[in-house]
């Protein structure tokens, strides 16, 4: 079994929070529990202020095992409004990373 993960091209993450609520709905999490969280990163450069958002998986992310077992996308990947997330074997995701600046891979499980 290959190890699977999430590829996030955060260059395009707008911080809309769809991944977080998709995760809560899918797992029916309550009281702030969530498998993914989006952080805001504000950096003041010499000529402009940059705003980026970074989704980070938490220890509650199970990569939507029930969905992916049936060939479905994880709920966060499916609903990402910026379409900047992908699910797959980590080895494949690393290849995708080659030509994507500002990207991340998480392999939570």
């Amino acid at each position: 079994m290959p190890r699977n993960g999430l590829f996030i091209e955060y260059e395009y993450c707008t911080g809309c929070h769809a991944c977080e609520v998709a995760c809560k709905q899918e797992h029916n999490f309550s009281d702030g529990m969530c498998g993914i969280r989006v952080d805001e990163l504000v950096t003041a450069g010499p000529d402009k202020v940059h705003v980026d958002f970074i989704p980070i998986t938490t220890r509650f992310c199970d990569l939507c095992a029930e969905r992916t077992a049936k060939g479905e996308q994880p709920a966060c990947v499916k609903h990402c409004q910026a379409i900047c997330m992908a699910y797959g074997p980590v080895t494949e995701l690393v290849k995708a990373m080659e030509d994507k600046p500002r990207s991340l891979i998480f392999a939570p499980k």
Binding site: C16, H17, A18, E20, V21, A22, K24, Q25, K78, H79, C80, Q81, I83
Partner: peptide, 12 residues
Amino acid sequence: MGRLCPKGLAIP
């Protein structure tokens, strides 16, 4: 195209 916003995903 398959996406939804947080408000749509919180409907239940």
